[in-house]
């Protein structure tokens, strides 16, 4: 079973999620796990991939691979998989990797299992573990043909160095399809990740679209103050401009594990859940009794945030006197 891992980088840093998948791949019994690194300046990152278990690293530094767009990457990967005869390709989920994996699936008519949290060899066959239907059931999934494509949930594996040595490096030539040259990144607004971080807060009060309006984030802020905590937000409200990007919790945002997480008007979509599910205690207020967030809350309160939150804040303030 020959394994290939798609590595993602940003600036000159390999992404932890993809290194975690590489480290996992190195435990699956294939002595020559390979990795692919595509983009500007990636050659310099190849030896780090070695320390996470890659025996061989394919690199391509073409200009077309500079912007974080999927289609040119599908072209390169398809060639590597075909020529290298790889039976399994593993991806760590991200905005970019999901589109690369799905494009490759169609290009190679290869089965893709997504949202996997683990993978194992059972009697020599690769089996993926996937929580499904709002994580209400755990499913074992398999592949009927090669290559097998696997997309892992963000944070599925820790990036632990395997102590591997210097990998063999193979430079790839890049030939792109017409449709892969269409999209262009014309502007990138990188968000500053320095400054005080909500990742260290013991208490987080997070707000979602159920707050109804940007002004209502005051409810979350006041409750956070009363609890001595920080404020978080969902992607829906960040993209709507209600709250800053730095407060976003979830797959594309921060991963937090405070002692207390209070979710106000948040539905509990899987991409939000992966960023906060390891919180010690989760309290959710949502007016919809069927909201998925209640499936993983310690205390679920079916009700209106506008009624309950001001009262709760007042009670907390009274208590403190």
């Amino acid at each position: 079973m020959s394994l290939l891992v798609f590595l993602e980088h940003h600036g000159n840093e390999l992404q932890k999620g993809s290194l975690g998948v590489l480290a996992k791949a190195a435990t699956l019994g294939d002595p020559d796990v390979a990795a692919v690194l595509l983009g500007g300046g990636v050659r310099a990152l190849a030896s780090e991939a070695g320390t996470f278990g890659a025996g061989k690293v394919y690199v391509a530094e073409d200009d077309a691979l500079e912007p974080p767009l999927p289609q040119a990457r599908v072209d390169v990967l398809a060639t590597v998989v075909r020529e290298g005869g790889y039976g399994t390709v593993l991806f760590a989920n991200s905005v970019l990797a999901a589109d690369v994996a799905a494009g490759l699936s169609a290009r190679l008519e290869a089965g893709l299992n997504w949202d996997l949290v683990d993978v194992a060899l059972q009697d020599g066959t690769l089996v993926g573990k996937r929580p499904a239907l709002q994580d209400s059931v755990s499913v074992d999934v398999g592949w009927r043909s090669e290559p097998r494509l696997a997309l892992f949930r963000a944070g599925a594996f820790d990036a632990v160095a395997t102590g591997g040595g210097e990998p063999e490096i193979e430079e790839l030539s890049v030939e792109l399809e017409e449709h892969s040259r269409g999209a262009r990144v014309v502007e990138q607004q990188l968000e500053d990740t320095s400054g005080p971080s909500i990742e260290d807060a013991d208490v987080i009060v997070a707000g979602g679209r159920g707050l109804g309006a940007p002004e209502s984030f005051a409810l979350a802020e006041e409750l956070a103050r009363a609890l001595g905590g920080a404020v978080g937000a969902t992607r829906a409200v960040v993209d709507a401009g209600w709250y800053p990007y730095s407060a976003q919790i979830g797959q594309t945002g921060k991963t937090v594990s405070p002692k207390l997480y209070v979710a106000l008007g948040i539905s509990g979509a899987i991409q939000h859940k992966v960023g906060m599910q390891s919180s010690n205690v989760i309290v959710a207020i949502n007016k919809d009794a069927n909201a998925p967030i209640f499936e993983f809350s310690d205390l679920g309160v079916v009700g209106d945030v506008h009624e309950i939150v001001p009262k709760l804040t007042a009670l907390l303030e009274q208590r403190r006197g």
Binding site: G111, V137, E295
Partner: peptide, 19 residues
């Protein structure tokens, strides 16, 4: 090209409450 091999039981819910 993919298949569901087995269904596991749902993970334990702990002592969660809804009011």
């Amino acid at each position: 090209k993919t298949e569901v091999l087995a269904l596991g039981s749902p993970p334990p819910r702990g002592d969660s409450r809804t009011i």
